[in-house]
């Protein structure tokens, strides 16, 4: 707006301000919450920093000490020097991947049923899922142990996988049900209307649209499985997963290699998350 129009306008009360005179309104900035947030994040990051730092510390009799004794890459160069560590690590990864896959394969149809249909017994299914999420790990693990013992089942790889799938189904169904409900039934009906059978409609419309949800559900299941200690400790038999292996060192001098594995996993996970964030930001 030019100055002329400003002056020509009929004015009531105080005259129009010249643009240069208009005072800048500064938003109130309070530092309390940001500082609190930083404090919390520091608290959360302390053990992670400790893990990374101690993985480079010179150990005493191949056990980490909290006292800094000098920088070394020894543990990283001899990553598999501690007995059983590689096996435990890869067992964990394999079980996490397998349980994630199986629970998605079982959970996706179930989520479809729960989000797309009204049927008798739906309430029972929902309560089972709710109970599965809300049962304490110690109860789930111990009752699974009692159950397998009573059937004379040999504990090991299989029992771990079975139980991991059992607790992961609930997370997968909950995640996918939310996605499917959010997507609504309209698009599937439109596919049917245009001549797609339910199966074709599922593969051409539903699946591409819930794919991100499926990935998220798989990753959640993977994470829950790979980090589980309590439930696994009941049904592992002689099989050792990484959390069980790490727990074995508790209070008796931990091999630095455990921290190296932790650090490597952490760095890889952070890089992947960062990459994912970048990709998401670039997409419109």
């Amino acid at each position: 707006m030019s100055d002329q129009t400003l002056t020509r306008r009929p004015t009531f009360g105080p005259g129009p301000l010249h643009p240069d005179d208009i005072p800048e309104v500064k938003p109130r900035r309070k530092l309390g919450l940001p500082l609190f947030y930083c404090g919390i994040v520091t608290f959360l990051l302390i053990p992670i920093v400790a893990m990374i730092v101690y993985s480079f510390n010179v150990p005493t009799r191949n056990a980490i000490t909290p006292v800094w004794q000098g920088f070394t890459l020894d543990a990283y160069l001899n990553l598999f020097a501690v007995q059983g560590i590689a096996e435990a690590f890869f067992t964990s990864v394999a079980i996490a991947a397998a349980s994630g896959l199986v629970s998605v394969l079982i959970g996706l149809p179930m989520a479809l049923a729960l989000s797309r249909y009204r049927f008798r017994g739906k309430g029972v299914l929902n309560s089972m899922i709710f109970l599965d999420i809300s049962a304490p790990s110690i109860v789930v693990g111990s009752s699974a142990l009692a159950f397998f013992l009573s059937l004379n089942f040999t504990m090991g790889w299989t029992t771990i996988l079975i139980v991991h799938v059992a607790f992961n189904i609930a997370y997968v169904v909950t995640t996918l049900r939310a996605r499917l409900s959010g997507m609504g039934q309209n698009l599937e009906q439109a596919a049917g209307d245009l001549g797609a059978s339910p199966l074709v409609g599922f593969f051409t419309v539903t699946l591409p649209l819930v794919a991100p949800g499926i990935v998220a559900a798989f990753l959640l299941a993977f994470a829950m499985s790979i980090d589980d200690y309590v439930i696994t400790s009941f049904v592992n038999g002689s099989t050792e997963t990484f959390p069980l292996y790490a727990y074995g060192f508790t209070k008796k001098g931990m091999a630095p290699q455990v921290l190296c594995f932790g650090t490597i996993v952490f760095v890889v996970a952070v890089c992947l998350a960062f990459l994912n964030g970048l990709l998401n930001r670039r997409r419109p």
Binding site: Q189, A190, G192, D193, L194, G195, S197, P198, G201
Partner: peptide, 12 residues
């Protein structure tokens, strides 16, 4: 007949 076998189409 289910919708995918009917010769009608819909504008939702």
């Amino acid at each position: 007949l289910p919708s995918h076998k009917r010769d009608v189409n819909t504008v939702f």
